[in-house]
Design a protein around this nucleic acid. Sequence first.
DNA 1: TAGATTGTTAATCGATTAACAATC
DNA 2: TAGATTGTTAATCGATTAACAATC
Lengths: 214, 214
Amino acid sequence: MEKEISQAVIRRMPRYYRYLGELLDDGVERISSNELSTRMRVTASQIRQDLNNFGGFGQQGYGYNVKYLYDEIGKILGMNQQHNIIIVGAGNLGQALANYIKFEKWGFVIIGLFDVNSALKGISVRGIKVRMMDELEEFLKKNKVDIAALTLPKEKADEVANELVDFGIRAIWNFAHLDLELPEHVVVENVHLSDSLMQLSYNIEKTEKSKDKK
Amino acid sequence: MEKEISQAVIRRMPRYYRYLGELLDDGVERISSNELSTRMRVTASQIRQDLNNFGGFGQQGYGYNVKYLYDEIGKILGMNQQHNIIIVGAGNLGQALANYIKFEKWGFVIIGLFDVNSALKGISVRGIKVRMMDELEEFLKKNKVDIAALTLPKEKADEVANELVDFGIRAIWNFAHLDLELPEHVVVENVHLSDSLMQLSYNIEKTEKSKDKK
DNA sequence: TAGATTGTTAATCGATTAACAATC
DNA sequence: TAGATTGTTAATCGATTAACAATC
């Protein structure tokens, strides 16, 4: 019986992956938790604890082999397999995501674009034509889709999300400004841009105030 | 001497704000921590603790007045004032953000678009023309800019971020896939979309596995 | 072998939840 | 006044950090 790994740990994994990728690019062969901790500004203890949730990737007296650790974290995050994505909502944000070719480096491939708005019918983004929602069921039968990105206004998002789940979608990358209420077996990752701006706004005020005190 | 409020609390505030906004739209006048806890799927205790970091907004025996609490949280988050934003990096994502008019509802107004790529010179998005970086200093002298959104590839982001800070920018909304190393007085809020996708990918795998066990 | 550094246990710190007295 | 519900203190839980024995 494996113990559940906390989301706090999961959130840090992509960051380790990124730093290791940079070290790899720089030709660094091995690194100790201590040296990595200095670069990343976290404690060495935390790095070792985090990694040991998944296995003993290091070696006493040596540290961690950068290439090996990079690959292992990649596997943990599922970067060793392709993820097919459809984007539902072909407005500005949806189109921007469709254009963002860098995702393919990590195996995230956008294979379809959908919208409810028939005004967008016929438009293509990076060679991917925008389809209407009534073509979705057929499309999902013919293509393996792992993730649906939801970039619709919140008024439509809830209904469309349920439709996606009915058609068999198991993972939603949600950009709509609401909390989706979906069955437990569906994984949802929220990107709430306005929440992020509000946090920034709060931290601006806080920083201004602490400056005033001096 | 005020105690520092943890980022865990700050992260939850925009969500409270959103739920209260919905209640307000629905014409709900008052709400108890208990009822709100049911809707938001958090504990009533957490709600009361979170709010009491900022003040006693409720009333024993009554609960919270929705309108009042909404406004108070709005003030905490700085939603009572306008924030002028420039977007640096007028590619797909930058343009998508510039087009996203909903931000204005919360007082976030995009007043400028900049890029290093002269191919974009002359293009306009929602009436905002793309300017070159050499116009930035002048622009910042003439306009109050509260936030710079960074939507450049990571190769350019670091250099541009430093430039922004040199010109007096105090807050950066960072979409580039790297950790900016900036002076302490600069507030940075990161939106790492690929990290978010990787988390989603991990959680997909985890959910698949737990299903297999049955 | 001696030195370095991990993996892991123990200690500490902080965040969440529970409980209840205060009070509307 | 009685009932409801907050604000706040105390208890619990979980996450982070420290320490060190194991071992390369």
